[in-house]
């Protein structure tokens, strides 16, 4: 018997330095967008509250406050699972942008990037539920269950809204999807898919209308008992997820890094920032939706809409070929 070890996948044969550079570019873009989202959210909050300051430094003040705060200890908390949920959530946006070609290539150039993004979305389910479960607190636990109910409503619309661009490009590979948008952005002929995608991004970021898992009616829900640096990581992860969702929308719907004058990375950031700004702004404009109501919206409105969009895209691609 001879075992030669697994085949080295073709995508890992590139220069290691290139991969490190691509990872740093993607991480930098994610960090910029995440901080930008937190600053914008702070400014919008300050303006709505009518406070004197601009609120631009709010995220930094809050980070400094949480870094100095002592961790809360709870009776019979499942500390391992709690920490996995609260700390692990920040890993999800990083893994999401790993497949996005921000510069010339992606840090992890998987040929099934669209599927990878979906898989990482499910990691959010695990983290949020574990964070809710581990605290051994009623409000946290209800928050965790709320998130799972909401996740079952947005998951399939998310998948099918990403299948539309994959069908249009005939590939799950992000560079191929970008190349297929040389003439027209996918946003132009898949607007419904883009809309359902944006709703799903709100969903997995537990943001705005889809944030009942962290609801004020549950005194914070999943984060009710999370304090100190854990709370900082978890709240930062929400902005990170919004940023990763916006960044992923660029190669899939907004033509990737194409654009005049400026370098590709700048266009990538600008387009993502535009999507992100709308998502952050939406929090103050749309009321929170109860998960049981959203369940029906997801299955009876969003999913059929995304399916019809896939059908339209499939018919157009067959007709054009």
């Amino acid at each position: 018997m001879s075992w030669r070890g697994p085949d080295v996948p073709p995508q890992s044969q590139g220069q290691p330095l290139d991969a490190v550079l691509a990872a740093l570019t993607a991480l930098g873009a994610l960090l910029l967008l995440t901080t930008g989202a937190a600053v914008l959210s702070g400014a919008l909050d300050a303006r709505a509250a009518g406070s004197r300051g601009t609120g631009l430094t709010r995220p930094f003040d809050e980070a400094a406050r949480l870094l100095r705060q002592r961790r809360r200890r709870l009776v019979s908390a499942d500390r391992l699972l709690w920490r996995v949920g609260t700390i692990g959530l920040l890993l999800v946006p990083v893994l999401m942008v790993a497949v996005v070609p921000v510069g010339s290539r992606a840090a992890l150039p998987l040929d099934v990037g669209v599927l990878w993004f979906n898989a990482m979305d499910v990691l959010v389910w695990a983290c949020v539920w574990l964070a809710g479960w581990g605290a051994n607190s009623t409000y946290s636990l209800i928050g965790g269950y709320r998130f799972l109910a909401q996740a079952l409503a947005y998951a399939l619309p998310l998948m099918f809204s990403l299948i539309a661009p994959a069908t249009g490009a005939r590939s799950l590979d992000l560079p191929t999807i970008v190349a297929a948008q040389q003439g027209v952005w996918f946003l132009a002929w898949m607007p419904v898919a883009f809309a359902t995608y944006c709703v799903a991004v709100l969903g997995f970021s537990v943001w705005g209308p889809l944030s009942p898992a962290l609801g004020a009616d549950l005194v914070g829900g999943v984060v009710a008992e999370v304090s100190g640096v854990d709370r900082l990581l978890m709240l930062a992860a929400r902005y990170g997820l919004l940023a990763a969702g916006s960044l992923f929308a660029v190669p899939v719907f907004l033509g990737g890094s194409s654009g005049p004058l400026l370098p590709g990375e700048a266009w990538m950031l600008l387009k993502a920032a535009a999507v992100l700004a709308v998502l952050v702004w939406a929090r103050r404009k749309i009321p929170v939706v109860r998960p049981d109501l959203f369940m029906e919206v997801g299955w009876l409105v969003l999913l059929p809409a995304a399916l019809v969009q896939v059908l339209v895209v499939a018919v157009i691609s067959v007709w054009r070929s």
Partner: peptide, 8 residues
């Protein structure tokens, strides 16, 4: 994707 969803 499937297994993490299933386990959740």
């Amino acid at each position: 994707l499937m297994m993490m969803m299933e386990m959740a």
